[in-house]
Design a protein around this nucleic acid. Structure first.
Lengths: 141, 141
DNA sequence: TACTATTACTTGATATATCAATTATCATGA
DNA sequence: TCATGATAATTGATATATCAAGTAATAGTA
């Protein structure tokens, strides 16, 4: 198969393998949270972002964001409030449960990232990011 | 935000942006096929792979593969047959419609990949693949 | 041959992705 | 202030992701 083909396979495979690692490690400690929900929880942490802002930060569709948030509220990780200055906008508070989980989550995610990037130099990572960004820009044109 | 964090964001963003490009370009010519279905169609092309083999090649879960294939049969892209030497195994034939679509598809996908990788050197791509593979291996340990 | 383990796939349940259409609210200019 | 256009979020429909449990067929072994 062509090298140009294999690049996209490699990106896809790496992403999926990393997500599996994440999910597996998170589940060892926290049973009822998904990788995406964990990501959202980290994003919201103290920052009072709106749904749209969170979605943009983690590259989620707004529709997906609505549903992820809905499940997180149902599971008592978040509380939704309306921003009174602009009633279209929702902002979120993290519940006690959310706070506890967040504290457990942070070192797990840190550990996963370390494991995933083990043996790579700063230069490797820099180049990786640069190349990915170029591809990303190309695709957006 | 930490560089190690940003790496995974970059991978995720790049993958999603590329999928959007793919999907948009494919839809211009073929209205009722998804990116994943197109990928499966290309894989099956002449090779008579089993579901499990296809799934492994494109990093899909077997359950997802069952459903993707089911939709492709419903849309008349594929015909499913049982391998008579081992009746657990399914193999697939591409229909006339599938063949036509496949011929249209190939140059589109080629063009997308070229666009996405425009301006990158062979070395860039080689390094990208190497680094991704290292991450992938790390995650699997 | 009968039993057991393995393999290939399927199904159910839940989560997320994506597009299109819709609702509620806000901003702006006539 | 009213009409119009934007923005933030939601909802519906369909596709895919993931895990667990289940089915059918096969392979391997006592």
């Amino acid at each position: 198969m062509k090298p140009s083909t294999l690049i996209f396979y490699a990106i896809e495979e790496t992403m999926k393998t990393y997500r599996k690692l994440s999910s597996k490690e998170i589940k060892k400690t926290i049973s009822d949270i998904t990788v995406d929900q964990a990501l959202v929880l980290q994003m919201i942490n103290d920052k009072h972002l709106t749904q749209t802002e969170i979605a943009d930060l983690i590259f989620k569709d707004y529709a997906s964001m609505t549903r992820i948030i809905a499940l997180m509220i149902k599971k008592d990780y978040l509380i939704k409030r309306t921003n009174e200055r602009d009633r279209r906008v929702s902002v979120f508070d993290i519940t006690k449960k959310g706070d506890i989980v967040l504290k457990q989550l942070t070192p797990i995610i840190e550990k996963n990232r370390k494991k995933a990037l083990c043996g790579l130099t700063t230069e490797d990572l820099h180049n990786l990011k640069e190349t990915l960004n170029k591809i990303n820009q190309n695709c957006k044109k």
